[in-house]
Amino acid sequence: MPRLVFAGSSDFAVPSLEALAGGSWEVSGVLTQPPRPTGRRRRLMPTPVGQRAAELGLETLTPVTLRDPASVAQLAALRPEVLVVVDYGLILPGLVLSLPAHGCVNGHASLLPRWRGAAPIQAAILAGDATTGISIMSMDKGLDTGPVYKMQDTNIGELETAGELRTRLAAMCAELLAATLPEIVAGRLRPRPQDETFASYAGKITPEDAEVHWQGAAIELARRIRAFAPRPGAWTTWRGQRLKLHRAGALAEAEGPPGRVWRAGPEGIDVATGLGSVRLLELQAPGGRVLVARDFLNGRALLGEQLGA
């Protein structure tokens, strides 16, 4: 098999690295983002891919950018014949894209051209998409614009959170890459151009996006709560403190003004919105752990409480 360099950073990319490193591929090196300060003590920690690559005994490069000659020279010294990219987080300039003989192959967590960009999993849930999936594509200079070799779809669960969907898609990406890559390097699989008329973009998520404004429609707010779980975590205020919301559904009926808890029981905590109610299923008090509604209500009386500003 040709020499392969893997480029990835997040936990989403780890199953793909493991699948390729555990197969018949010669993984000559790994590209990942530099260690960053984490936790209260701000200790420098490697990325999940960097940590796993070290455990596998793989040579690891951590360039700040791939636009300087020194970083490109380091990559060229690994003599990659194919570069596999999964959730790497750095832009690949033209010189890097043209370096491997078999090109740069990317595993992306959407059914391209829908949801190009940084947050395709969250975007699919926010939009109420019934399905999403994995696209294996040939990279070009655009943002997720290259021709696609293969796609695999999956249904999005009615109450599935972004974290749960991300875990499933990470495993799918690893399996699809392992199955598709030999066909690509052998020249037996040709990519098809994306249809630009169906393109959509999923921008980065900010902490400000995660606040729940109860004046909205219940179905959209429930999607927002699931899309932002576990990170950055949808939230509202309760008695002057920030209350994180991790899983929710939507109901047609409601009583009281938006933000009022009008029903609370083992099945969930129902909050009135501008249209219908959000049923909170999993919550997290400040400093606490994530609890299902039944356990959260033990020792806490929420009925009649007002959430949010």
Rank of each mutant, 00 (worst) to 15 (best):
L4K: 02
P113K: 07
T131P: 00
A73G: 12
A202S: 08
S135M: 09
T62C: 11
P34I: 09
V292L: 09
I269W: 00
G117C: 14
K204D: 12
L176V: 14
P37N: 11
L181Y: 04
A248V: 00
N155T: 13
R224F: 04
P69M: 11
D68P: 01
G133P: 02
A218P: 02
S98H: 05
G163C: 13
E220D: 15
V72C: 03
H246I: 08
C104F: 09
R188W: 06
V27A: 02
G8D: 07
A202D: 07
G299F: 10
T197E: 12
G22Q: 04
F12Y: 14
P15A: 10
I269K: 00
G265N: 15
L275A: 14
V72H: 05
P2I: 09
T236A: 06
L111S: 05
G259Q: 03
V64T: 13
A170D: 07
F296R: 03
G107H: 04
R263A: 14
E175Q: 11
V30M: 11
R224S: 13
G157H: 06
A123N: 04
V86M: 10
L95R: 13
L281N: 01
M1W: 03
D87S: 15
I156V: 12
T197M: 04
P15W: 03
K150L: 13
S71K: 01
A101S: 14
D129A: 15
I134E: 09
S277Q: 01
D209M: 14
A264F: 01
